[in-house]
């Protein structure tokens, strides 16, 4: 639905240049929620703004619903933009218009006749649960409600694609949850494809099917969330299951074990202890519900250097677990 190839955007100011987006490839499949996770300044907003050409990339291709946006100009580009909804961190609502007026705005822009607008506005407000606040001004409603107005407005043109720039960053955790719920619901009910950017792990965990981690303008990893979490060394996994830098005592092996679905229910710790008659120390870990599977990560300590634990590690791997071994004092920290 969204396909980005070799996208590059460089900002130049004087003799300083910032490569905000550096050779990014991205494919968002129809009906999926794709999250781009990254720290401040990673280039997330720039990437997103290149999708509807609020920002013109220096090179690369942007295809939305099969259309090459960079080939479009003037009216054709505006037309294409109408098929791409966008929601913004700071809402971007017209303070001089009521909630209903804000939702009607894109309809005016699209040339929907006045008579049809009211009905469509009512429908959209219903969809986001704001019917009672139709006559309120943005200054009179809460942040969560403002973002609902933003969502209703973004859906006015019945877009197939929704872009979301930190839609929940200005909201408290509870409101964030309700907005994410709404987005998930719209994604399912309307078959809406969502590309969202965020710096909150929570957002990816709650609603994303696929995700990418962005750093300094590049994707450092990208793919279905569950697969990424099972990959050794995944930043996403490290972010979702934060464990401190391992402190490996001499003569022990510290292992991070990531498990999914079935294996989450299998007591691998006790099976390991029983099979090899060793003491397994649990140092930390967590289990999270991701989509419809449970994924967990556990840090355990085995007695003896890694070389002595080859059989044990193989046992874990054979059980379908992802295993990351941390160095010992002999090898030096990884």
């Amino acid at each position: 639905m969204i396909q980005i190839e070799k996208l590059r955007k460089v900002y130049r100011s004087g003799d300083r240049t910032v490569t905000a987006v550096d050779d990014v490839d991205l494919t968002v499949r129809e009906g999926e929620v794709f999250g781009v996770l990254g720290r401040s300044g990673a280039g997330k907003s720039t990437l997103l703004r290149c999708v509807n050409l609020l920002e013109r990339p220096d090179s690369g291709r942007v295809l939305v619903d099969g259309r090459d946006l960079l080939a479009l100009k003037g009216g054709a580009l505006r037309e294409a933009r109408r098929g791409i909804g966008m929601i913004h961190q700071h809402f971007g609502l017209l303070s001089s218009r009521t909630v209903a007026g804000n939702v009607a705005f894109p309809l005016e822009v699209m040339g929907v006749p006045r008579a049809e607008r009211a009905g469509r506005v009512a429908e959209l407000l219903e969809l986001v649960g704001l019917t009672e606040h139709a006559g309120a001004y943005p200054a009179q409603i809460s942040g969560g409600q403002k973002q609902r107005v933003g969502i209703a407005r973004a859906l006015a043109g019945r877009p197939k694609v929704l872009l979301s720039d930190e839609a929940t960053s200005a909201l408290d955790p509870e409101t964030t949850a309700s907005i994410l719920e709404l987005l998930r619901d719209l994604n399912r009910r309307l078959g809406l494809t969502v590309l969202l950017i965020t710096h909150e792990m929570e957002v990816v965990k709650r609603i994303c099917d696929s995700a990418a981690v962005m750093r300094a303008g590049r994707f450092v990893e990208s793919g279905p969330v569950q697969r990424l979490l099972m990959e050794p060394g995944s930043e996403l996994a490290r972010g979702l299951f934060p464990l401190p830098e391992p402190d490996v005592r001499p003569g022990t092996t510290v292992v991070d074990v990531t498990f999914e679905g079935d294996s989450a229910d299998r007591p691998f710790v006790s099976s390991l202890a029983r099979t090899y008659a060793i003491d397994v120390n649990i140092l930390g870990g967590a289990v999270e519900q991701i989509g419809d599977t449970r994924i967990g990560r556990l840090r355990v300590e085995l007695p003896g250097d890694p070389e002595l634990n080859a059989a044990q590690l193989a046992h874990l791997r054979e059980s379908g677990l992802t295993v990351e071994v941390h160095g010992t004092s002999l090898e030096g920290a990884r």
Partner: peptide, 18 residues
Amino acid sequence: VEPGVVAAATAMGATRRE
């Protein structure tokens, strides 16, 4: 006028005149 509002209108496909 908040630049975000102008960006939002642009993203909606509004013309410069609008």
